[in-house]
Amino acid sequence: MKIIACIKQVPDSEAKVKAEGGQVSWGDAPLVINPFDEYAVEGALQQKEAHNATVTALCIGPESAKEALKHALAMGADEAVLVSDPALENIDTVGAAKVLAAAIQKIGGADMVTFGRQTLDNGAGLTPAQTARVLAWPMLGWVGNIKVDGGSVQVERVLEEGRQIVKANLPAVLSVVQSIGEPRYPSFMGIRKASKANIPVWSLSDLGIPAPAAVVTRSELINPPVQETAIEMITGETPAEIAEKLADKIIAEKVL
């Protein structure tokens, strides 16, 4: 079985991100694998163990995104591919889906492609379903458990209304969420292997597709107003007294 895990590189969530001169800046905070995509890699690796599959990590991004791919390799992925082209700098999610679909075909197809639920930077949560649509494969979103049986896959989708069990034929596109389990830490051996890995870089001409034109574009960046909250500590002799005072404060806020 062949699995491809799609990952992106984003600024760490501890980073102080702000708008500066029309650009997003995050100072010298590190770039990391999108945290949602660690679940995509974890989900793929669980299937690798259960079915002796191979896992390829796939990313569209600048040269620096190789570091995120190395993280996936260090976790246990077998191979990694970076798609990098100056023409891809401002693509929208439909564009990313078309490029990912082309890269998936060039890799030689797959039985399963795993995604994260959304990116931390853009946060659209659109790319997995759009890739599935472009490939005309089944889309299984918000998956917390994966069982492959021959040519089909059964998943548990973790939804607001409860866990839904859904079955589809392979190949299929999955977006994987936290219920899949804690992403494994890179092992010492894994890190060593990843540091020596040769990661191929494909351009659009390697994929044989034109640069997708973005229809969704950014026109302005805004720093949200800082909220000044002065905390008021509520104290008292007994829990009842504290609760009494706190209840009055909450009611006075007129939020109920």
């Binding site: 909250t229 002065a230 905390i231 008021e232 500590m233 509520i234 104290t235 829990p239 009842a240 504290i242 609760a243 009494e244 706190l246 209840a247 009055d248 404060k249 909450i250 009611i251 806020e253 109920l256």
Partner: peptide, 27 residues
């Protein structure tokens, strides 16, 4: 507490039920 408008330093097992009681009465 750096993010909150109101804070209580205490055991939730004591404060939460007391708050429920106080709210019941006041509402």
């Amino acid at each position: 507490f750096k993010q909150a408008r109101y804070g209580v330093v205490g055991d939730l097992f004591a404060i939460v039920p007391a708050l429920t009681e106080a709210m019941k009465k006041k509402l």
